[in-house]
Design a protein around this nucleic acid. Structure first.
Lengths: 188, 188
DNA sequence: GTCTATACCGAGATAGAC
DNA sequence: GTCTATCTCGGTATAGAC
């Protein structure tokens, strides 16, 4: 999916990568949609776990920002979004998952804004959540999918200046590692 | 493309909508890629024209904001982005077009920020351009492709408050009409 | 310019042997 | 659990008649 888009993920090619015959994909997952759903659910669970770890870190804003800028997560989400366009089951799963993720982010901003004694009317937590997600998502799309980067560095600097005003400099050690992507699992 | 995604656009179905045989698609465009490119170029030209009209309007920020929130433009762009993932020619065309669009937006913000005597160091025009595009793009993706809208209204209000501080209330009449989507053309 | 005919490929999926 | 065999569909694309 990441290399060639969801349309390139077929039973034949999936099986070939696993060194097996295409029919086994259907044996394990029946339809391709079931396979995509299984993949999505596993990634969504991992995403929520990572978000929880980011929220629990000493610098939640830095952690959330780093997490949402992880290209692999966003690129996969975009593929699933495109797939969701004509697969109802995927779409339902994806939007439910996005809602859960947003709720987590909202709680994080509520907590953080209270901690730094900011006015919720001036910086509504839900707006902060949407802004953080939209900016990071968009930058990843342009960078990874189009190879574009005009204005990206300046925008990152701008956002990070805001975070720095709240949480101070990024602590280089512990937090970032706790949010790193999870390695692919081996088949059982 | 808008209804079912780019993967649903095949020579057979395209021809069927036109009431013709699939082979004619190849007669006119040779390959499907050529067809997609032709479509993209026409839309990209229209997009630049609309942007130019927005820049020339009495309230460029309102016009640009409305334009970038037009769901049809963004939805198509997202389809092409997904398509670009595995079609080199599309990708090159798309990123070139996005660069041109960004440049236009940058010039707009330079002009506007100067007009309202804002500090360019505090609000870098290129950052404004990236922010405007990312927020509107992301909202459209969630709304149109996932049917999600949590936090959207609040975010729109937030952005529009900023615009209002610069350009005052939206002038309801002239500007908006000048930025409206262009109707589909008939085949010649 | 539009058609018929046709080649060729690769997709999803099922049946049934081992 | 993995295989072979096979069905059916729909995609891209070309050749050639009219």
């Amino acid at each position: 999916m990441l290399e060639e888009g969801y349309a390139a993920v077929t039973s034949r090619r999936t099986a070939a990568r696993a060194g097996l015959k295409p029919q086994l994909v259907h044996y394990y997952f029946r339809t391709m949609d079931d396979l995509f759903l299984a993949l999505f659910r596993r990634r969504a669970d991992q995403g929520l776990e990572r978000q929880a770890r980011a929220l629990a870190s000493a610098q939640p804003l830095w952690s959330l920002w780093d997490l949402s800028r992880d290209p692999r997560g966003t690129a996969l989400t975009m593929e699933f979004t495109a797939l969701a366009n004509h697969r109802k089951a995927i779409r339902a799963e994806l939007s439910a998952s996005a809602e859960r993720y947003r709720t987590g982010l909202l709680e994080a901003f509520r907590t953080v804004l209270a901690r730094y004694e900011l006015d919720e009317a001036e910086y509504p937590p839900i707006v902060c959540a949407v802004l953080l997600t939209s900016i990071s998502t968009f930058l990843v799309i342009e960078q990874e999918m189009l190879g574009m980067s005009t204005g990206h560095a300046e925008t990152v600097t701008f956002v990070e200046d805001v975070i720095r005003r709240l949480e101070g400099d990024r602590n280089p050690a512990a937090d970032i590692a706790s949010v790193l992507p999870i390695k692919p699992e081996r088949r059982r």
